[in-house]
């Protein structure tokens, strides 16, 4: 396990201090950490446990229950493919095959260049304009394989710019 750098540790500590007084603070804390770091580092579990006076097992149990929370760093962008019925009726199954093939990863996987992490999602509420995908916080409707490929190119070029 890589040890967390000082800056990340401080960010986690700040999220915990800011939110621990809230009733039912655990989910807001977990969201806060994942929003800032992209994931919930295992090192944060004992920190949260101590602040909330709960066991590490309790905290781990909550993290592992929810599909959204992850314990490893994601790629630079997260792409979620809707797998629910309304999207199925518009060809989501074939689309999902295309996406996995194009990116060369299955769900929960990250591309080798670490630009994209692929996740599934059950409904983005855009069911009248299916199929839908979510890229980070942006939802895109009536997506086609061609549209998706263009999107991936765009995301990868953004990564180059950052580098």
């Amino acid at each position: 396990m890589t040890t967390l750098n000082e800056q990340a540790r401080n960010q986690i500590a700040k999220v915990i201090t800011d939110l621990q007084h809230k009733p039912g603070a655990l989910l807001p804390i977990l969201h806060g950490i994942q929003d800032r770091l992209g994931y919930i580092p295992p090192e944060s579990v004992p920190m949260i446990a101590e602040a909330l006076n709960q066991s590490r097992a309790d905290i781990h149990g909550v993290i592992s229950f929810y599909h959204q929370f992850r314990s490893t760093a994601p790629g630079q962008h997260t792409v979620e493919i809707c797998r629910a019925e309304a999207c199925q009726s518009m060809g989501a199954r074939q689309f999902e095959t295309h996406v996995k093939h194009t990116l060369g990863v299955d769900y929960h996987g990250t591309t080798t260049d670490r630009s994209i992490t692929l996740e599934s999602v059950y409904c983005l509420g855009n069911c009248a304009c299916a199929p839908s995908v979510r890229v980070n916080d942006q939802i895109i409707g009536r997506v086609t394989p061609e549209k998706f490929d263009g999107l991936v190119d765009e995301l990868r070029s953004q990564k180059l710019e950052v580098q």
Binding site: P23, G24, A25, L26, L27, L30, H31, L52, V62, F65, Y66, H67, Q68, F69, V121, Y122
Partner: peptide, 19 residues
């Protein structure tokens, strides 16, 4: 929430709200 369909069930939702 955090991507869990079951939390639409009211008692699971309350558990989730309680952390």
């Amino acid at each position: 929430g955090a991507k869990a369909y079951i939390c639409g069930e009211e008692t699971a939702l309350l558990e989730s709200l309680e952390g």
